[in-house]
Design a binder for these strands. Sequence first.
DNA 1: ATGAAAGCGCTAACAA
DNA 2: TTGTTAGCGCTTTCAT
Lengths: 345, 345
Amino acid sequence: MRSQPPEIARNMRTVALRAGVSTATVSRVLNGSGAVKAETAERVRKALKELRFIPNPSATTLKYGRSNTYGIILPDLTNPFYPEFLLEFEDVFVEQDHEVLVATTQSSQQKLTNTVRRMLMRRVDGVVMMASEVDTRAVEPILNQQIPIVTIDRRRAQKGCADVAIAFEDGYREAVLRLKALGHRSIGFIGGTEGLRTSEIRLQAFQQALAEAELRFEPRFVRAGDYRVNGGDAAMRSLLRQQRRPTAVMTVNDLTALGALRALHALGIGVPTQMSLVGFDGILLGEAAFPPLTTVAVARREMAERCLEALGKLQQNVGTRGPLLSVPVLLVERESTGPAPRTRT
Amino acid sequence: MRSQPPEIARNMRTVALRAGVSTATVSRVLNGSGAVKAETAERVRKALKELRFIPNPSATTLKYGRSNTYGIILPDLTNPFYPEFLLEFEDVFVEQDHEVLVATTQSSQQKLTNTVRRMLMRRVDGVVMMASEVDTRAVEPILNQQIPIVTIDRRRAQKGCADVAIAFEDGYREAVLRLKALGHRSIGFIGGTEGLRTSEIRLQAFQQALAEAELRFEPRFVRAGDYRVNGGDAAMRSLLRQQRRPTAVMTVNDLTALGALRALHALGIGVPTQMSLVGFDGILLGEAAFPPLTTVAVARREMAERCLEALGKLQQNVGTRGPLLSVPVLLVERESTGPAPRTRT
DNA sequence: ATGAAAGCGCTAACAA
DNA sequence: TTGTTAGCGCTTTCAT
């Protein structure tokens, strides 16, 4: 025998009736707008509770053209960094009583166009865009509607846009210094897909880190990858085909490092005894690798918070350029790095 | 010099004005409801296009209390299986012009309660629930609102509910038979968290597979894990602490297998030379492991399609029990499995 | 301190 | 075949 489900109010009228007030008063109590006598407010709150009132945000969206929803556009969910970020993003935004609309582009221009339309239809109040691989002209309709956009890692801002950038420079500097302290003198690099702005930025950050550590940048120890496992694997094999080798390799992200690690295993090269390896991102599965991967972890939570902050700033000053913010980074030393081997292999 | 952004219509009135018709006609053209003269329809379509009309679904949601949005509740996004499934889910639903509302519970009862409220507020038309770890009484308000729910892997349905189950039995059977063909006679198992219904189901499926293959089930070769890397690592270490060992180990999911693999590496046990290892789920990163992980892959796409199908059935027959559907599974043989070692270690 | 009412955009019932 | 209109739920302005 199940008890009858309790009556539930799906509109304010029902609540107002029960409390013996008008819907205007209910609204005032809910939003803390306008003055309501304490006694009345109490009665309303009681009715609200008893009737388990479920507000209908589409009414507000309809009235004001704003939905309290924020869109997030991710390139992909198969790189664990993105879902791990999404987790924090959702948490941060929902905590502020915002709703989140998730979309992935999967590097398809068509998908991005559809996504933009979906976001416009849902009257999002802002968009966070983490899809460096696609042509960003597709998002112009969003800007035309005066909806703020926060990009990730573009390192520039225009009217209505802000940018949140990962501190690659700090990350590579820290890692290079640590490797130097471990005795490494020649450090290789497996980068991202060629031709992408973000690949360029990361490679430069690595070069700069070497310079600051007074180590030589050797182009023959550099390879392009594709931000994925197979690219890292192929790049590492290519690196190892040469006569001379670096004693340590840094990568553009963890997936690349995992691929490189697999190649090293397959070729019977000891990690870290014969070669040290450093990833970037700090995905959880880096710890599941053998040996557990040393990496530069990106502070996902702070990244989500910076997005929220940037969006807030853009809303305060519509039509102006938004801020350029930075996300900190942390070297997580695990077991894929160790002292440089005595003799160069 | 940028060209002026084109005027965009955010309501039907503007479009109707331009086409010289009423909003009702515009609506009829858009939805293909009611008869419209071909010539008029053409004029409307032209106006629609010229003005880049963006419909406002909140109006429809407000009018009908239905949003064309489906909620999906995931336990977590750090297990790559979930985002990989989400990717397909989004794709399948968006393709049908549905919107998707994503939420994660992170095994928190409070978060689930909030999520349910969010879904109710957004007037979702259905919910897919993949969170076996939490108390499902929290979702009752959804059922009370006559909103259909599709659960994953509960293997039962009640009024307003359907279930989509992964064919564990098939998966374990296939894998066990393959291992048997490779000469394995004693096969261990690392299961899920104890006390969960889904852990029970999976263990039983494994036992059944052994029985069908006429292999003995040996409880001392069974350990509980936690569906995560560390649980798999610990369980494997515990398994290896015994005098006698299985020659192959199957696991409840890939994360568990990855942890087990790490333990095997750490203890210097060759995979697959000394021990074979089989995961479950087919996460992409299984291929990045060394050796690449043999696993039973769950057909994510079909899983998403079954969810859509189940939701459709439930909507056709409100208030009845929904179907129990099944998702197929595929053995993906990579390099963590091989012939059983000659002598038992 | 409170209530009445308008209006956001859309669709379907009804009228013409 | 097409148009007019009511009404979904909410907030806010304007009265009271």
